[in-house]
Simulated assay, not measured.
Amino acid sequence: MTEISNRASGRVTRNDVARYAGVSSAVVSYVLNDSPKRVAPETRARVLEAVRVLRYRPNAAARALNRGSMEMLGLLVPDSRNPFFAELCHMAESVADDQGRALLVINVEGGTEGISRHVQSLASRQVDGLLIASYLSRGGVVAVDHAAIPTVLLNQFGPVDGLPTISVSFEVGARRGVEHLIEHGHEDIAFVGGGDPADGREIGWLRALTAAGLRPGRAVHSGFSPTEGYRAGRELLAGQRRPSAVFVASDYQAIGVIRAVHEAGLRMPEDIALVSFDGTPGAEFSWPPLTTVAQPMRAMVTEAIRQLIVPGALTAGPIEFPMTLVTRGSCGLDHGADQPAPPAG
């Protein structure tokens, strides 16, 4: 009768499980917490059967208090609707789960104030570590310092005050994408991107052209969305001099640029070729499929989470991962060939 009433009320306790299995509550704890103390296989089986029958759910808050850890990580992203950040969130959740951690994802709005507010909120929730994939200003660095949470930065344009940073060289990747277009005879190569002076993608575009002795093409700045990419593409094609190729700072923007090209009655890549940046899964399914400089998402996320959960693993500074140029139809090739971008320097 007690079992039925407890199950109905949803207040099944560890003691209920112990009584049902005919063991002490300490043994139940050993089994559920994977304690190093030995428990006979048949006893373990009885405990797990009791948990199943009674539908017992351990109190996560109590377990965290006992262990001194919430077993939870926080992730701040600028916009989880963006396929790059959606993939990052999915990958981070998968890797965290493999390590027995839950992941709390927060979209950041409001610049430095937004970062500071969310960092404080996650600190109050006692997360064990923090991943920040939004651009971190000086004010954000101060907020991280005050929170005193192990923190790793992702997707930054460069080193940030000695904080652990896992990223790629945006400049090196962009140069490789533009050089690919130059290798195929393009001389008038435009740029579509965010316009941040620190963004290495525009710097890489410019330096690749300069190194080849070519005049810089037109640069059109836009937000990181298909809508903004579409606007930038229309603006680019409305000029008196139409470029033969364009380097776009993200796959997400490139989708909008492609639409603008189609609506202008132009063919891609015959009339205008395109290379983008990020390597999101959807890039393969645009029309034409996108040639893109791909970031090694899983490797970067795995390293970031390793640094957060392994004692003493945090590094004081940046780690850069190499990228891969994936060639498809938007640049005139559809080989699916993977070519590593050369290292920085």
Rank of each mutant, 00 (worst) to 15 (best):
L266M: 15
A283N: 10
F247S: 10
A219W: 04
E284M: 12
R215F: 00
L206D: 05
I255R: 09
Q295G: 05
V248H: 08
A238H: 12
E202G: 11
W205M: 07
Q253T: 05
V257D: 02
R201C: 02
A260C: 05
A249P: 00
R231V: 06
R207K: 15
V248E: 07
A212W: 03
L290I: 10
A211L: 05
D278A: 10
E228W: 01
G217D: 09
G239W: 04
S225C: 05
A212Y: 02
L274S: 03
V275E: 06
A249R: 02
L209I: 05
I255F: 14
R234T: 06
T210I: 07
D271S: 12
P226A: 08
Y252K: 00
A264V: 06
A208M: 04
R215N: 12
D199K: 04
Y230E: 13
D196K: 13
A260W: 01
V220K: 02
V261T: 09
A238T: 07
S222V: 12
V261S: 06
R259W: 06
G213E: 09
R242D: 05
A273Q: 04
G265N: 04
A294M: 04
V220C: 03
A283D: 08
L209Q: 15
R207I: 00
Y252C: 10
P289D: 09
D278M: 03
S244Q: 13
L237Y: 01
A212S: 13
R207D: 13
G229R: 09
L206P: 00
T210C: 00
R267L: 13
I203S: 14
R267C: 10
A264W: 04
Y230Q: 13
F285E: 12
P226N: 11
G229Q: 07
S286F: 14
S250N: 13
F285W: 14
V293N: 03
L236P: 11
W205I: 08
F224Q: 12
R215V: 15
R242W: 02
R231K: 10
P288G: 04
F224C: 12
G239C: 09
E270D: 15
R242S: 13
P243Y: 01
E270T: 09
T227V: 14
G239A: 15
W287H: 13
G233I: 07
V275G: 09
V220R: 03
F285A: 13
